[in-house]
């Protein structure tokens, strides 16, 4: 289900100078080209989603923008600070929460935040005041004085997110903030994220979930093999994918090709046929019900029985298929070596 966005979408093109700007970013690890010329421009006060499968280069992009990695080529700046030449000044205006909950399990929630505050060079009293404030805001006040190792996964992730906010960053980077969380914690975290960008913080987040980008981001860039392959608002991207997807499962595997022949002509772009699972998938745009009815009619006429037929929302798979002609799973299977070589690049 899609949750309605809490803030207005900024569909209009950027009128101000972008607060995050990347031009032709390139980065390789040995012979693995993690980024092959990435351009990004994020307007101040907006939420920008980097959407892509494992190994697409999302994390590499975030690591470059947060000064953890140097790019091999191209340039990038955050709030006017160059990621290489002005790294130190840049770090004062950003917050980062990565895939792992980077909190010290042996410190209490409060001590973790106070430490980060001090490392942002806040005076002790201010670091403490803000730590209390953040714990309150993230529903962790009761657990403030317990070691973080006693926290649940969701609490730890919130604490991690809180740590990235103690410095009141102008620009916040969240790398797959909800990966590994159960659906309930994920939705809770979405609320928290929406809350924290209300006061004008710019947010760049990476995700593998189209739904997440849709709920949180004003604009989305789809990344594949180290390049941005599409960019726009969630609505624009969905329009590009074509609204809904019709999924048909044929009972007899031997008749999959026949079934595909019967229904593929219903949409201009054609769809996807999987002989192993007996699935035929086609993007149906806004005409779901009409095409569904027609598909049933044709298959029935051909005497093909179905084990399932359904209209569903497009997933990252569909975006991907539409944009690249490949499936997310194929991409990940094709690159097993790179996951090992780029340990920190692997999204769990």
């Amino acid at each position: 289900m899609f949750v309605a966005p809490a803030r207005p979408r900024y569909d209009s093109p950027m009128s101000e100078r972008p607060i995050i700007l990347a031009e032709g970013l390139r980065k390789s690890f040995g012979d693995v080209h993690a980024l092959r010329g990435v351009d990004l421009a994020v307007a101040p006060g907006t939420v920008f989603g980097l959407l892509g499968p494992n190994g697409a280069g999302k994390t590499t992009a975030v690591r470059i923008l947060t000064t953890l990695l140097h790019p091999d080529g191209g340039r990038a700046e955050v709030d006017g600070h160059d990621v290489v030449r002005d790294a130190e000044a840049l770090r004062r205006v950003i917050g980062l929460a990565g895939q792992a909950a980077a909190v010290d399990p042996n410190l209490t929630g409060f001590e973790n935040l106070e430490m980060v505050g001090r490392l942002y060079h806040l005076p002790v009293a201010e670091a403490r005041r803000r730590s209390r404030e953040v714990l309150e805001r993230f529903g962790l006040a009761d657990a403030a004085d317990r070691p973080a190792r006693t926290y649940s996964g969701g609490m730890r992730r919130r604490l991690d997110l809180g740590a990235s906010l103690v410095g009141r960053p102008k620009v916040l980077f969240l790398d797959e903030p909800t990966t590994g969380l159960d659906p309930r914690s994920r939705i809770e975290l979405w609320d928290v994220i929406r809350e924290l960008v209300k006061d004008g913080t710019t947010l760049l987040l990476t995700t593998q979930y189209l739904e997440e980008a849709d709920v949180l981001a004003d604009r989305i860039a789809v990344v594949d093999l180290g390049a941005v392959i599409a960019e726009g608002t969630a609505d624009e991207l969905k329009a590009q994918i074509g609204g809904e997807v019709l999924e048909i499962r044929v009972s007899e595997r031997s008749r999959v090709a026949e079934a595909a022949g019967a229904v593929l002509g219903l949409v201009p772009g054609g769809g996807k046929v999987d002989n192993n699972t007996g699935e035929v998938t086609l993007p149906v745009g806004g005409n779901g019900p009409a095409i569904l009815t027609e598909a049933v009619r044709r298959l029935d006429a051909a005497g093909i029985t179905l084990s399932d037929i359904a209209l569903r929302r497009p997933t990252l798979d569909d975006v991907f298929l539409q944009l690249t002609g490949r499936e997310v799973r194929e991409v990940e299977r094709a690159a097993p070596g790179r996951a090992r070589r780029r340990r920190r690049e692997v999204e769990p």
Binding site: R63, T66, T67, L68, E88, R91, R92, I94, G95, L96, G98, Q99, A100, A101, A102, V103, D104, V116, L119, Y120, H121, A163, S164, G167, R344
Partner: peptide, 17 residues
């Protein structure tokens, strides 16, 4: 391994600290 070094590095903290 825990990722906390990434956090430290993203902060305006002295590199040697």
């Amino acid at each position: 391994a825990s990722g906390i070094v990434d956090r430290f590095k993203s902060l305006p903290t002295s590199r040697s600290a």
